[in-house]
Design a binder for these strands. Structure first.
Lengths: 209, 209
DNA sequence: TCATGGATGAACTCATCAGTTCAATCTAAT
DNA sequence: ATTAGATTGAACTGATGAGTTCATCCATGA
């Protein structure tokens, strides 16, 4: 790959990164293409050369954000294997890590943009579900199914259990973070994770207590 | 109250109602004050006479929406008293009713606007929490505390249990409705409510099974 | 060294929209 | 009927921002 073409690619990435930042900060309508270009260190016509128009730039920025979010969440889930000695501790660690991801600035910004622009761009829902939400639920469902087969959890509907596990984290998590407007101290995140896991294990553990 | 002053109040309400509709449909930035005035059957200067500027109109429209949402949710909760013969059935009925409220067009629109404009108007979070979310959680926590005292549920942290109950409904509910872009058939709502109550009762019932 | 093609910046068009102004009109209480 | 205050419509200002144009620049590859 020549330096010339890498130069072009770097500009694309720079524009996407800047677009993500500016759209998150200002919202779609209020974000100026001029501002995005400036933030990317690029001239405005270059933006239009690469992305055609503002809408297309927006969609591709969202997709890139969703990809990043997926990577982070899957990394959080990797900690959970069915050989874990202490299941409760393992679930709490995963829960805490997922909460950190959910409260992350970029995740919050992505959810905000998604909610905000869903009326104008209904296809954003599919973009984000295909690239992130559905994948995370599936991955967790898979882990839970293995734990069930291994006899560590009772027989369960894996997807439903995964949705409930995530809900037990995300609901109280969003309340604590006030939809992302408040920085949640780490010990609060641990408390939410512990509460979620306690409820989850009471409902789904083979040897419930 | 004279007809004159009622006339003024009616215009105020008409403007607020129209503002809620237009802001929900178009988002804050894209909503035109001209359009709101037209939708309210009122001249643009009248809007400015009553509300000063667009921001103030927006805040008051959000507050009115939150008030409406609170009323609906409290009505849903009223069904739950600690004398209910069949606790599971009662919780399922309440859960279903709350899901209907959560999936309601106006609730979805309110959540969308809240997410969308939270960066620009951080105080919206407080407006909505004080008028709706916190009140609903408190009301449910109160019911659960009574059920606990009555021996129908195990000893619990009422607010935490309420948050988790709502999360078990809202999380899967939002997934089904695709953040409100999909009309969820009533039997799916019942299924989500039943699943939530099953998990909740396994975790919190005195005689867990 | 030179030709090629993306990148630049600055200026420009066109549309939208917040907020104002004002003369004309309506409505309710006296 | 008269007055006071709210309402109206229509036109206007000023700002903002999408998308385009074009002359110029510069790095690359031959």
């Amino acid at each position: 790959m020549t330096r010339a073409s890498r130069g072009r690619i770097d500009k694309r990435e720079a524009i996407l990164a800047a677009a993500s930042v500016v759209f998150s900060r200002e919202g779609y309508a209020q974000a100026g293409v001029d501002v995005i270009a400036a933030e990317a260190g690029v001239a405005k016509p270059t933006v239009y050369n690469h992305f055609g128009d503002k809408e297309s730039l927006f969609r591709q920025a969202i997709a890139a954000d969703a990809d990043r979010a997926l990577v982070r969440h899957l990394a959080a889930l990797d900690r959970l294997d069915d050989g874990a000695a202490d299941l409760r501790a393992a679930l709490e660690a995963v829960g805490h890590h997922m909460l950190v991801c959910l409260c992350d600035e970029r995740s919050v910004a992505l959810r905000r943009l998604l909610h905000a622009e869903l009326t104008r761009f209904p296809d954003l829902m599919d973009i984000v579900r295909e690239r992130a939400s559905d994948r995370v639920t599936e991955a967790l469902a898979d882990k839970l199914a293995r734990l069930s087969v291994a006899g560590r959890l009772r027989r369960l509907d894996p997807v439903q259990a995964a949705e409930q596990f995530i809900a037990l984290l995300a609901g109280p998590g969003e309340a604590r973070s006030r939809l992302g407007t408040r920085q949640v101290p780490d010990d609060e995140l641990w408390a939410v994770a512990r509460a979620a896991v306690t409820t989850f294990l009471r409902a789904f553990a083979e040897d419930a207590g």
